[in-house]
């Protein structure tokens, strides 16, 4: 995405956010639609629970719109959204203790991935199995990180946010963000070591 596009998109986001009239559902629909996937992806990564992620995303938008008068344009709208969502996710994790403990992940991992990944029509193709296996390894590594570190890694690797934006979204300093991302990568790298050493294409 070109910077100008980002600016234009963000202009539109703020315009929709600040001016959406309750009588005009389209404005709300457009704004939610523009950020829904990013929001769901972010919350799913932090919570590791897609269903709960959906609830949190709804709460996040409602919270933002409910306090609309208190917000002014000091950051990108999506960054603000991530910030609100992260707080809600952390609250949920603390309240419901939904984060799967590392020991559970180890147990799952100990089960052969091939025996678990089936689509009901028989064995998956080998490439698909390896891809899924790699995904599970990354997920296991990511889930050993604390929620803020997971969020930092996701915002950098998937959303491609600059460190400054990640810091804003996570209410952290640049140094913290730098460390979190580095440690997150190290954790994943360690888990992927066998793949990396084999020099396989890990996408």
């Amino acid at each position: 995405m070109e910077p100008n596009d980002a600016t234009t998109d963000d202009d539109r986001d703020w315009e929709l956010f600040l001016q959406a009239d309750p009588g005009d559902q389209n404005a709300f629909r457009e704004l939610v639609g523009r950020h829904f996937r990013a929001a769901i992806g972010f919350c799913t990564q932090v919570l590791n629970d897609p269903q709960l992620a959906e609830d949190v995303v709804q709460k996040g938008f409602v919270k933002l719109f409910g306090a609309r008068d208190r917000y002014s344009r000091q950051a990108r709208f999506r960054t603000l959204l991530f910030r609100v969502l992260l707080r809600l996710c952390i609250n949920e994790l603390q309240r419901k203790k939904v984060a799967r403990p590392f020991t559970d992940l180890e147990d799952e991992e100990s089960e052969p991935i091939q025996s678990r990944i089936k689509d009901g029509r028989g064995e998956l193709p080998e490439e698909e199995v390896e891809r899924k296996e790699l995904g599970e390894m990354i997920r296991a590594a990511v889930m050993t990180l604390n929620p803020k570190h997971r969020a930092a890694l996701y915002l950098r690797e998937y959303e491609q946010l600059a460190y400054a934006d990640v810091a804003t979204a996570l209410d952290a300093t640049l140094s913290e963000v730098k460390i979190w991302i580095h440690r997150g990568r190290q954790a994943v790298q360690q888990r992927l070591r066998p793949y990396l050493e084999r020099g396989e294409r890990v996408r």
Partner: peptide, 20 residues
């Protein structure tokens, strides 16, 4: 190179995760 590949793997992982 390991870092780069790890990063690429993670992006791939997130792509799959977010692919509805």
């Amino acid at each position: 190179e390991d870092l780069r590949r790890t990063s690429a793997a993670m992006r791939g992982f997130y792509d799959v995760e977010n692919d509805l």
